[in-house]
Write a protein that binds this DNA or RNA. Sequence first.
DNA 1: CCTGACGTTTGATCGAAATCAAACCTCAAT
DNA 2: ATTGAGGTTTGATTTCGATCAAACGTCAGG
Lengths: 232, 232
Amino acid sequence: MRSSDLPEVKSIHLFETMNDDRFESLVNAAYLQTFPAQVDLIHEGDPADFLYVVLDGCVELYAQSNGRETTMAMVPPVGTFILAAVLKDAVYLMSARTSQQSRILMIPSQDIRLAFESDPDFAKAIIRELANCYRAVIKEHKSIKLRSTVERLANRLIRYHTDQGSIGSVLLPYDKRTLASLLGMAPENLSRAFNTLKPYGVKVEGATVHLNDLSALETLAKPNSLIDDRTM
Amino acid sequence: MRSSDLPEVKSIHLFETMNDDRFESLVNAAYLQTFPAQVDLIHEGDPADFLYVVLDGCVELYAQSNGRETTMAMVPPVGTFILAAVLKDAVYLMSARTSQQSRILMIPSQDIRLAFESDPDFAKAIIRELANCYRAVIKEHKSIKLRSTVERLANRLIRYHTDQGSIGSVLLPYDKRTLASLLGMAPENLSRAFNTLKPYGVKVEGATVHLNDLSALETLAKPNSLIDDRTM
DNA sequence: CCTGACGTTTGATCGAAATCAAACCTCAAT
DNA sequence: ATTGAGGTTTGATTTCGATCAAACGTCAGG
């Protein structure tokens, strides 16, 4: 990998407290590769051979059962995925595909396990990361069990709005089909949910969504920090 | 706490690799208490002051938003809950109440954090435990996004059947209202889901459910180890 | 500029699950 | 035995979201 990428990877929470030498040997054993969009990286049920780090692009985690499919999460740069399977030396519970052209770092899972066995600081970082991942899924699960489709969309828009600097409009980070699946609804219903939000100042223009009456939208969405706030 | 309880607590995956002295000082600082049924132990949003260990009885984890409420998980003996909040020194994302009379060990979260900072073996055990919790929630999330209510019930019955020794019948571990909430449906619909399963050999007798045609039930349920198998 | 593919939207309909309401058990307390 | 409370079931109805089908937009490639 390019040495210019090193600081970027090192800046991930997971690695930043790691001893420099150890970090370098970990990364030296890793593979860096650029994939086109819509390439399957891993498939659920396969043994966890690598920990993945998204350096550029975006990766979709999804799951299948019974002929149905659903998007579980989107991983933007710089994020890791499938950490739990790697640590447990178990099979993946989710599949992953690139949603755009993506630069991906693949670290052999054996190296990860060796590193956390021998480096207490790395173990602590893993604990922090895992606890965050756990709480993120809990929040997703609460969202789907406690909210209607329209409420889930409204809160998601508010989240993106905050993420993107509260400028009164939002650029949807992925296509609507994927967003629908992530929110647990059919694409047709996402479209209808947007219509339902029209009276609350939500105006869709392609991938741009204008939020012209945030307080009305919040009244409907009833955002809840214990579901929507990803910093806690 | 009674010294007779020590081995029981020590047998939890989380503690079994821990140095004995350290374990004893951890437990000495803890509180052991017996609560009647339906007592609220913690409430979502509160700071995580304790890690909880269920020694006897059973605890329901639940969440609320917007006037709605849902059961997130049931914690039987000997299990812990709210580990992630404790590690992060964050607020609880879920509330907890006893579902029967329960004996609960409460370990101050500061002691837990000190222990994992200074004991690499304990840190490793925490990683294992957290990874398991994470994967358990992922499975729940897959279940609710990929399956209908009837399928969720069918698979849950098969799981309990296996847990209880595959004797042709199942004793529901909690009341049907709670089971319904755990499975993400209204109590009325749980009752109807049982009726739907009647042609597949499912016969309800109070809290006992007879599974008279397991292969038919499995044909309908289409169990998937990546959702239903809790050992992986 | 045209074409066709693909994502999105709209309309119509269907089906699953929620809700409302009432009846019905079960069982503990009197 | 009787009462009453809480859990469960059944029935009727409504609502939400899924599905099916077709139209529409957008945009890259010819």
